[in-house]
Design a protein around this nucleic acid. Structure first.
Length: 850
RNA sequence: GCGGACGUGGCGGAAUCGGUAGACGCGGGCGACUUAAAAUCGCCUUCCCCUGGAGUGCGGGUUCGAGUCCCGCCGUCCGUACCA
């Protein structure tokens, strides 16, 4: 008897699919289209088991949708620009381009044996000049449409290496290579005007019915619509040209509790004072130290500098407030200036205590008091409070009511005006790096910033560059920068900044619909294939990538590169969890942990041992990391067990949105199960028909069709797999005749085909299935075979389970109640007492209340 | 710091709407087959002070009934705008 041999089966069927062109996507007006896309990978060098899980989920959907009569587009490409290629060039020599393309070759070679039903003819990498040239064309159209502009913005500056650092290159406020204290420095940079779409991007979230609520909530909070009051404090004896400080506040109702005004170190007033006062300059220098991340700013110690200047309170001109420069105020948000109300804000309270400023309450709890000196009183805005220093509205009202009343009052009295602001900032796309899409503009002494002509695209990256010194090699390239001004023809300089890689990944889904078009998209193809019906990727992209893509597609609609319907490019989104693996560690001589490879550890009764018998500590479910030696390599898994086992395992055990822990035992079990399915088909006997057994097995089969289909439809792949185990057990135990068993096993193969396509084809052909299972229509359950005529009901007394009864499905409530009360355990628990109430939920449960 | 999620047996996890907690798998135990082992097959497996009781991170609450809803904690993970 032949055995399940994945190594023989898998290449055979992959070739059969290739020869038949099963996965090529061609427009077909007669079929409904279905576009399934997984977030494309960064070509780091090897595929990761996390990729296997991500692409297997997409492949299950793709194969299932093909079986249900859809014309499926399922493409793959590479997000190929970015820092790691430059880091590799710096560390090991070589060129980012060679490193990247060599990695892509390796990863394609590793992906193909997994048998994903991809249309490989559509593959591209974002570093292909054909792709980034079209991206440059989009940039020029966006520029013309007013969606791009330049302004100053802060970057992390390494004063020793004289280079800009990415946030991840700043560790504890210091440059990762130089160790120097990082400074925040302003540069002129390019921006996309995503803020034009703040309200639309927020409101349109409501139309994304098939996105996870958590992602929509995260985006909504990120965009951060707020209504507040913008007004000015008049400045007493300020420097020339500075007679007021404009502030924005979302809590104008606390204005009577103001005790200071704070301005950003980058505020024009701070910059003016800095010129003449060395102490201000010293403070601002210190305040500008450290990284640019919101996290670093928020966690840094709150520091203030008393400028000695005063402003007048708008409601009481005799009331003067000090003006502080504070390191936690961002110039990018609001007006770069705030008023502080220590009584009702955690941060202001801390600041007031530190600099000995008054803490004044404006409202207190409706009942009881609050010691405002020891802690601020910060209730939810929807909670009613009692105002002690009321500006407008009722004495007892909610924060929300007070805010609105105060804004109305201020507008009526000429103190500022109500404004709606968004937290969302414009998208800075300039990167001072080589390995990215060049920004196609030219700087001319006479004409200023001039867009490159479209016929000159792509502006390609020069190959002759080196990475032996920090910084952007484009800046110091001897000839690449020099060019003729597209407007006047005089000598000019190219822009040397390249684009943020989020630009690359903002429109690749559109490009897949016509990857070789000589324009960014082909409208006919885009109109047929867009939108992405199902997008699958990691939750880490919940905000930035997905928000940028939503904006970018709006820009593409505006500039005529996508149809109106593609403003929201992703109809449904699914965010999958990670694949984790245990860490095996021992303590080294110096007390530091030593990490051991899984293959060096023997597991026994939940404990792990090294070859020399030393016990290792097992840390379960840790994120895979090369430095922890707990990375599992899909190539090794395929070599050991085959692709179908890897695919089956990453889908089983855990729900797709949660993390799954890779274990050798689990992989072993998956492999055994697949071998068992193969054996069922290969060892099918000639048993004669048996009416009762046949019907029983067919009923199991129809239940399996229903349950597995439901699981696949609702991303419950682990639930589908549990049902498939159950159905396999039912077949193995069944005494049904050979014909019925053959039908059942063929159906099992079909139901497994999205997950384990190679095994499914093999079983299908063993049992005489017609053609390729990859082209067979999805089985349909027979409703009549699913109906049970009796039902088992649990009986509870006071919510505790005391027994169960089996009754005809449609027995009326009174009868069920009678039977339940007659139940031995129930009668004993009642002990003759009359129940107060009996709750009968038909088909579900009986609860006796006593 | 802020925003979002998650937490169930020895382990991964199931439980469509608030209605039998622990499906399915791993691990473990017992047995069959075998000279023996592997492979395979069958049965058992939440815990305990076991005619009962307890139990879904911890503490409260709503309900006839809570893993599921509400309030407050603790822990872990993701994001925090130049990692992708």
């Amino acid at each position: 008897m032949s055995r399940y041999a994945a190594a023989e089966i898998e290449p055979k069927w992959q070739k059969a699919w290739d020869d038949a062109g099963v996965f090529l996507a061609r427009r077909d007006a007669d079929k409904p289209k279905y576009y399934v896309l997984e977030m494309f990978p960064y070509p780091s060098g090897r595929i990761h088991i996390g990729h296997v899980r991500n692409y297997t989920m997409g492949d299950v959907i793709a194969r299932y949708k093909r079986a249900t009569g859809h014309n499926v587009l399922h493409p793959m490409g590479f997000d190929a620009f970015g820092m790691p290629a430059e880091n590799a060039a710096m560390a090991n020599g070589g060129h980012p381009k060679d490193w990247t393309y060599s990695n892509i070759d390796t990863m394609v070679a590793q992906m193909k044996p997994l048998g994903f039903s991809l249309d490989w003819t559509r593959m591209f990498a974002t570093c292909d000049p054909e792709y980034y040239g079209q991206q440059q064309a989009l940039f020029l159209d966006f520029l013309e449409a007013g969606l791009v502009y330049r302004k100053n913005a802060v970057v992390n500056w390494d004063p020793v290496d004289m280079t800009v650092l990415a946030n991840e290159q700043v560790e504890d406020g210091r440059g990762w290579r130089s160790g120097a204290l990082v400074e925040r420095r302003e540069l002129t940079q390019w921006f996309f005007k995503i803020s034009d779409y703040s309200a639309e991007l927020l409101d349109a979230l409501d139309t994304l019915d098939d996105w996870p609520a958590k992602v929509k909530l995260m985006q909504a909070n990120w965009i951060g619509r707020s209504r507040g009051l913008q007004f000015a404090f008049s400045l007493i004896d300020g420097p020339r040209g500075f007679d007021r400080v404009e502030v924005y506040t979302t809590r104008p109702d606390t204005l009577m509790g103001a005790s200071f005004v704070g301005i950003s170190p980058d505020h024009p007033l701070a910059k003016e004072l800095e010129k003449s006062d060395p102490k201000v300059a010293a403070f601002c220098k210190e305040a500008r130290q450290g990284g640019t991340t919101e996290e670093a700013m928020e966690k840094a110690e709150k520091l203030g500098f008393d400028t000695g200047l005063k402003v007048r309170h708008p409601f009481d001109t005799a009331w003067e407030l000090p003006v502080y420069i504070a390191n936690f105020i961002l110039m990018d948000y609001g007006t770069g200036a705030i008023f502080g109300c220590p009584g009702h804000d955690e941060r202001d309270h801390e600041f007031a205590r530190k600099y000995d400023l008054p803490i004044i309450d404006t409202f207190l709890p409706v009942e009881g008091g609050h010691d405002i000196q020891s802690a601020p009183f910060v209730p939810a805005k929807t909670e009613k409070v009692r105002f002690t220093r009321l500006v407008a509205g009722e004495e007892i009202q909610t924060g929300e009511e007070a805010i609105n009343a105060t804004i109305d009052f201020c507008e009526a009295n000429g103190v500022g005006h109500g404004v709606t602001k968004f937290r969302l900032r414009d998208w800075g796309l300039s990167r001072q790096r080589y390995w990215g899409c060049p920004i196609p503009v030219v700087h001319c002494d006479d004409c200023g910033v001039v867009p490159e002509k479209k016929e000159n695209l792509p502006v390609t990256l020069p190959d002759d560059v080196s990475f032996d010194i920090p910084g952007n090699p484009l800046d110091r390239h001897p000839t690449w920068r020099d060019c003729a001004c597209p407007a006047c023809g005089k000598p000019a300089k190219r822009e040397t900044d390249t684009m943020d890689t989020f630009v690359d990944s903002s429109w690749y889904q559109a490009r897949f619909t016509s990857p070789r078009a000589t324009t960014p998209t082909d409208m006919e193809e885009a109109d047929y294939w867009m939108n992405v019906d199902q997008y699958i990727g990691g939750i880490e992209h919940a905000i930035l990538h997905l928000l940028y893509a939503r904006f970018f597609c709006r820009g593409m609609v505006k500039t005529g590169h996508l149809p109106e319907k593609s403003k929201e490019p992703f109809d449904a989104l699914f965010t999958q969890g990670m694949v984790t693996h245990a860490i095996y560690q021992t303590k080294g001589d110096n007390g530091r942990p030593v990490y051991h490879y899984p293959e060096d550890v023997t597991l026994k009764d939940g404990q792990g041992f090294l070859k020399d018998g030393q016990e290792v500590e097992i840390i379960p479910s840790a994120k895979m990391s090369k430095s922890k030696n707990n990375v599992v390599d899909p190539v090794q898994i395929i070599a050991d067990y085959g692709a179908d086992t890897a695919r089956w395992f990453v889908l089983s055990d855990s729900p797709p949105e949660r993390d799954v822990e890779w274990t050798a035992a689990g992989a072993e079990a998956a492999s055994k199960h697949l071998a068992r399915v193969y054996r069922l088909a290969a060892e099918l006997d000639n048993a004669p028909a048996n009416a009762e057994e046949d019907t029983a097995l067919l009923r199991e089969m129809h239940k399996a069709i229903r349950d597995v289909t439901l699981g696949v439809d609702s991303f419950g792949f682990n639930a589908s797999i549990a049902k498939l185990y159950g159905f396999t057990n039912a077949i193995a135990k069944s005494k049904a005749g050979a014909d019925t068993k053959r039908t059942a096993i063929k159906t099992l193969a079909q139901l497994m085909s999205p997950m384990t396509p190679h095994l499914a084809e093999e079983v299908w052909s063993l049992l005489g299935g017609e053609g390729l299972i990859a082209r067979a229509p999805w089985p349909k359950e027979d409703e009549a075979m699913l109906v049970d005529d009796s039902v088992t009901l649990p009986i509870q007394v006071n919510g505790k389970r005391r027994g169960e009864i089996t009754v005809p499905k449609d027995l009326d409530k009174a009868e069920v109640e009678k039977l339940a009360l007659a139940h031995e355990n129930v009668a004993r628990t009642l002990d003759g007492a009359q129940p107060k109430k009996v709750i009968v939920v038909p088909g579900r449960i009986v609860n006796v209340v006593m």
